[in-house]
Design a protein around this nucleic acid. Structure first.
Lengths: 241, 241
DNA sequence: ACCTGAACACCGTTCAAGT
DNA sequence: ACCTGAACACCGTTCAAGT
């Protein structure tokens, strides 16, 4: 969600002048900031400094920190509709759900540090289930399925199953992706871990010790595709019945 | 996770004397506090006040706020092993996974406000996938499945699929459960929602409007059982092949 | 119109000092 | 041994004041 004018993270354009503050500029700077520094580092004062401005200036464009976080979520989810290379297909509900699933997955992969925000902020309504936090997305989901043979009930059940599926898979995938960057890997393979404040060595857990390396391997592409396929099959069966 | 002596949230026993501070007392008070007031309200100073003590006293038993959060997670997950009425069954891996799934679900249901912590804190290692954040649980999981015919690879695949499944379903269920308590329901059914800072009325979204009430219904029991069943069947198929 | 300085109420955390 | 007062560096947020 880059603003109209090309910028660097400082909110300064190529000529060195500071860009005029705006809601969009603030939001895109915030996304960049979280991508680089992680969610806990996002602070009104810090974001202000990144934009070359005092924290209080942001309040002219954004109703406080909570509103800023909500804006970030909205800006990410709305990428689903803007992107030209991901035109929604017209050949069946399975293709539609494939398209939607991969669209959300791409967002999670491009902004793994932001995804927990999309996944765990309190939804505005009980029927806005993360990570599908957009009225338009939910509306499209339901009308797409209903127009293709789903009953009201089965469309709703599909919506619930689909969102649970995406949330579980993508949240874990995003967590693994951000962990790589901020956990120092013990290159000697000395597997020892500090869990829950108490020092507990993996040595007492033979299977974990034996399978450690293989447990850390990344097969998320294949696993996502297989689980998605399985889920679509399951929806298909409930349709036939 | 009640401490040995019966207490009320103030950390004061029945006689009015203050209980001696301890790691366990602090942790169980913290869990109670989050259950009642939500995660964002949990503050060192606030928890101190709840215990009738200054915030600084807590640092004698807990290495700061991050450590406290980690302790909370550990104390919740360890309930899986302590509880007498949920003895691990011996008749097959499917029964074991059913037992484990319902054990984790019970934790999520009893402490919906704490569950996001279990679900989204950075795991200590890439192979500790939330919500199964315990070396012992992972060890049991793997050895149970391997001793019952799973190959190393299929046990690992099952672990990944199982944790994704639990995370997605239980996080959404817990979110719905806490939302009920802190969202004021419009008793007139005037469905209007403020999403992303911009006022957007559901009226522009006919399917959502039409299905609104049914979208809000809770079918989590049935949905959890059905999805779990489906997942176990899927694992069974990968075993046979 | 847009930004800022100063102020307020709150954090987490440390450490010397009290009992 | 266990708790606290005072202090520090940070938060989010408001508002009158500057340009």
């Amino acid at each position: 969600m880059a603003p109209a004018v090309s910028t660097d993270p400082d909110g300064v354009d190529v000529t060195g002048r500071r860009l005029p503050l705006s809601r969009e500029l603030i939001i895109s700077a915030a996304v960049l900031f979280v991508d680089d520094n992680g969610l806990p580092a996002l602070t009104m004062r810090g974001l202000g400094k990144e934009l070359g401005v005092e924290a209080m200036s942001l309040y002219r464009y954004v109703n406080g920190r909570e509103d800023l976080l909500e804006c970030i979520v909205e800006s990410m989810v709305s990428e689903l509709h803007l992107n030209p290379d991901t035109v929604e297909p017209l050949n069946g509900w399975q293709a539609y759900l494939q398209w939607l699933a991969h669209g959300v997955r791409r967002i999670a992969q491009e902004h793994p540090a932001v995804f927990p925000l999309i996944a765990t902020r309190h939804p505005a309504a009980p029927w806005l289930r993360p990570p599908l936090r957009s009225l338009k997305v939910v509306e499209d989901f339901l009308s797409e399925l209903i127009s293709r043979g789903f009953t009201d009930e089965s469309a709703i059940a599909a919506y619930r199953a689909f969102s649970s599926f995406l949330l579980g898979h993508l949240l874990l995938e995003a967590a693994a992706r951000t962990a790589e960057s901020d956990i120092v890997v013990d290159s000697l393979g000395h597997a020892e871990v500090t869990a829950g404040g108490a020092e507990s060595s993996v040595n007492a857990f033979p299977q974990v010790l034996r399978l450690g390396t293989r447990l850390s391997e990344d097969h998320s592409d294949n696993e996502f595709e297989a689980a998605l396929e399985n889920m679509l099959d399951r929806l298909d069966r409930t349709l036939a019945h």
